[in-house]
C-alpha cells in the first residue's frame, strides 16, 4: 500500500503524539549501526521526529534490546514504530535480505541512513592486507551492497532518500587511517554516482563527512592526543553526536541537495 493509493497523510516529521482525525502512515527509515555513537543519536532523533525507524546492530543484542526499550517508552504502537535488526554488513546474504525484513515489519521503506562502519588504525606501510580489505569490505562494500538491495523498496515510495555517513578523513585524509579514508572516500564517490544514476527517478542521495565528534571512542583519549585537532577547528570544540544527527535529518527532508557531501567539522582548517 502506498500513500497515493490510500490517500493517507504522511507525517515524516511529526511526532504524531495524541489523536489525529486522519490515519497516520509514517515514513520509514532504516539506520545501520544504530546502537552506538552517531548512529544511536540519529535513531533517537528520527524516532523523536516521528519516523518509523529500523536500526541495525551487529552483535551486541543486549545493548540493542536495552536501547529499543528506551526508545519505545512513551510511544504509542511502539513495536510498529521502532525495531532492531541484527545484521553483519560484511555478510552479503544478510544485507540482501534486510530491506525485505524492514518492509515486512513497517510496510514500507522510504529512506536509508548508511551509518555503520569500522576502523582499524595503524601505520599503513606495516599493515597486513587482510586488515585494510576488511575495512574496505565493511565500510564501502557493505554499504554499497545494502543500498543496491534497498533500491527497489525505496523507489516504490514517492520521495525516497539515502544519506551516507562518510568522514572528513575520506576528503582530507588522515595519517594512520589510510584504509578507513579510502573506504569513506569511496562512499563519497558512491554518493555522487548514485545521485547521478537515480536522481531522475526521484531518489535523493547525499552524504555527511563528520569531523572530530564526541563518541565513546573519543572519550577514552587523552586530550594531548586531540588538542591539535581542536586548535585547528574554527569552533574550538568537538562536535556532538546530536549535531550530526540534525544534519542527517536535514538531508532526509525534501530539498534540492543531490550528490553533495556536507562537512560536519566545526570549520576544521577553514
Amino acid at each position: 500500500m502506498t500513500s497515493k493509493q490510500a490517500n493517507i497523510t504522511l507525517q515524516p516529521a511529526d511526532c504524531g503524539v495524541g489523536a489525529s482525525a486522519v490515519p497516520v502512515l509514517r515514513k520509514t527509515v532504516l539506520v545501520t549501526g544504530g546502537t552506538r555513537g552517531i548512529g544511536r543519536a540519529i535513531v533517537t532523533k528520527l524516532v523523536s521526529d516521528g519516523w518509523n525507524v529500523g536500526f541495525t546492530y551487529r552483535s551486541e543484542a543486549s545493548v540493542a534490546d536495552l536501547f529499543l526499550q528506551t526508545l519505545r517508552e512513551g510511544i504509542m504502537d511502539s513495536e510498529q514504530r521502532v525495531q532492531a535488526f541484527a545484521v553483519d554488513l560484511a555478510s552479503e546474504e544478510s544485507v540482501r535480505n534486510l530491506p525485505a525484513q524492514v518492509e515486512t515489519h513497517f510496510g514500507r521503506l522510504d529512506a536509508l541512513v548508511n551509518n555503520a562502519g569500522l576502523t582499524d588504525d595503524g601505520a599503513f606501510l606495516t599493515m597486513d592486507a587482510a586488515r585494510w580489505q576488511r575495512v574496505l569490505n565493511a565500510n564501502f562494500g557493505g554499504t554499497a551492497r545494502l543500498t543496491l538491495a534497498a533500491l527497489p523498496a525505496l523507489l516504490r515510495q514517492p520521495d525516497p532518500s539515502v544519506v551516507v555517513v562518510a568522514s572528513l578523513a575520506g576528503i582530507s585524509g588522515k595519517e594512520g587511517q589510510v584504509s578507513y579514508a579510502t573506504s569513506k572516500g569511496a562512499l563519497v564517490g558512491f554518493t555522487q554516482w548514485l545521485g547521478r544514476r537515480y536522481g531522475e527517478q526521484g531518489l535523493r542521495v547525499n552524504a555527511i563527512a563528520p569531523g572530530f565528534i564526541r563518541t565513546e571512542m573519543v572519550n577514552v583519549l587523552e586530550p594531548e592526543m586531540y588538542d591539535h585537532i581542536l586548535a585547528a577547528t574554527a569552533l574550538k570544540r568537538m562536535g556532538e553526536v546530536a549535531e550530526v544527527a540534525s544534519a542527517v535529518v536535514f538531508l532526509l527532508s525534501p530539498g534540492y541537495l543531490q550528490g553533495s557531501t556536507l562537512r560536519i567539522d566545526g570549520g576544521f582548517k577553514r
Binding site: 585524509g173 589510510v178 579514508a181 569511496a186 564517490g189 558512491f190 547521478r196
Partner: peptide, 26 residues
Amino acid sequence: QYYLPVAAQPMRSRALVGAIKSLAKE
C-alpha cells in the same frame, strides 16, 4: 559525463583521493 560519454565514475577517484591524502602524510 554529463556532456561526454567518457568512461569514468567517481568511486575509484574519490577513494584514492582519501588514500593518497592519508598515506602521503605517513
